[in-house]
Design a protein around this nucleic acid. Structure first.
Lengths: 217, 217
DNA sequence: ACCTGTGAATAGTTTCACAGCT
DNA sequence: AGCTGTGAAACTATTCACAGGT
């Protein structure tokens, strides 16, 4: 199993994995590539090929077994490993994430919150332990935190991100409009800046409004 | 100007556009393709080609003029048009978005909030007008809302999304873990499910932890 | 009849290389 | 010296087509 899997294929497989989880909970036993493709907005061919990359699963004939395929993706993509998560910046978005209960059963435990405002740390009511910002690196290291949600003010984003990374964080979901400059490249950053996303949507809308301008999806 | 621009190029250009806005505010006058590439994590070649797709801007020699390039991308990608935005679901995330002040100056006006809980509508304190969920379609139509942030409970996601679309929304940022089934395809959906993003990060981390397994970025 | 698996063909994207400008 | 612009080459990903199974 030393084949290279294309990055977009991995991305799609993660989505397939999540979808299979939903289907599993709803009691479905089998699912076809065309159905997956329909729900995810890709072609059935494409999905079949993606599954094929992590290959040789004995499912032939009529569709895939939901839980078999789910476990198979999980195993091949190494998704089984539970990860510890922290939230940096406990403003409105940060504390909303901190309180969200849906992570645990997917294998992600929120084990710490950070904020530089000590008042806020005192008044916050949450079941998650919270710490002042200057303890970030230590706490991240001690608690073996691998993923972080960054929801601090834009000005502080790079400073805080660096402390998270110094502590050993390997993946950051960045809600900040700031661009995180990564000094190492074994750190992965996913940007979730709403303004940028709105811009992207705008561009796509403009494109299919003026069909004569350029013919992209 | 009838050339097809690759979708990934458009995506990058939107990011470049945003970056140029930041640079502009910080007083920078000129920037080179290699600098942009460095900040955005793509190669300089790539950025140059992307800019070239919307082409024939007279910038040659030494770098691009920040504001010239910004305006050029804006014009070519039709980003100038201001858009009205609404937020559906005023829980913690929804109300956090509703209150965020950074959209207006980028051309996005939040003009409505929706929630099915009438109590919540009564108690919420915000400068944005809020409406009960059954008025979604009408309000969206009347206020000419084109973009929506979806932050309702997962069970309600598809129902609410459909009402938004029926009113004329063309782009949705979906904070829900639910998959939005789109019946028309001139509607664009960006998914921002944290669990899925964590999964993606996990996969990427696993990949570069076991370098011997498969050699993808 | 409808499904998966998979090599081959096609389409799409990125990288290269170098001409031309400042 | 360092930059952009751009055609061509290299590479990557998607789609097709059909064999084989249920």
């Amino acid at each position: 199993m030393n084949k290279k899997i294309p990055v977009p294929a991995i991305t799609r497989l993660c989505k397939v994995y999540k979808l299979l989880g939903d289907l599993y909970l709803s009691g479905r036993k089998r699912v076809s590539s065309s159905e997956i493709g329909g729900l995810l907005g890709s072609g059935a061919h494409n999905i079949r090929k993606d599954i094929n990359y992590i290959g040789e699963i004995g499912n032939t004939g009529s569709g895939y077994g939901v839980s078999v395929l789910k476990e198979h993706i999980c195993r091949e993509l190494n998704l089984k490993k539970p990860r510890n998560v922290c939230v940096a910046g406990l403003g409105r978005i940060g504390s909303a994430v901190l309180e969200y209960k849906g992570f645990k059963k997917k294998g992600y435990s929120i084990v710490a919150g950070f904020d530089s405002d000590v008042n806020r740390l005192d008044t916050i009511r949450t079941s998650v332990q919270v710490f002042p910002a200057h303890e970030i690196t230590d706490v991240v290291r001690n608690k073996k935190i691998e993923l972080a949600v960054l929801a601090v003010p834009a000005e502080a984003a790079n400073d805080i991100a660096q402390r998270l990374i110094n502590g050993g964080v390997k993946g950051i979901v960045n809600f900040t409009p700031a661009i995180i400059i990564k000094k190492r490249d074994n750190v992965h950053i996913i940007n979730m800046d709403l303004v940028t996303e709105f811009t992207l949507l705008s561009a796509r809308i403009s494109i299919d409004e003026s069909g004569n301008w350029c013919g992209v999806l």
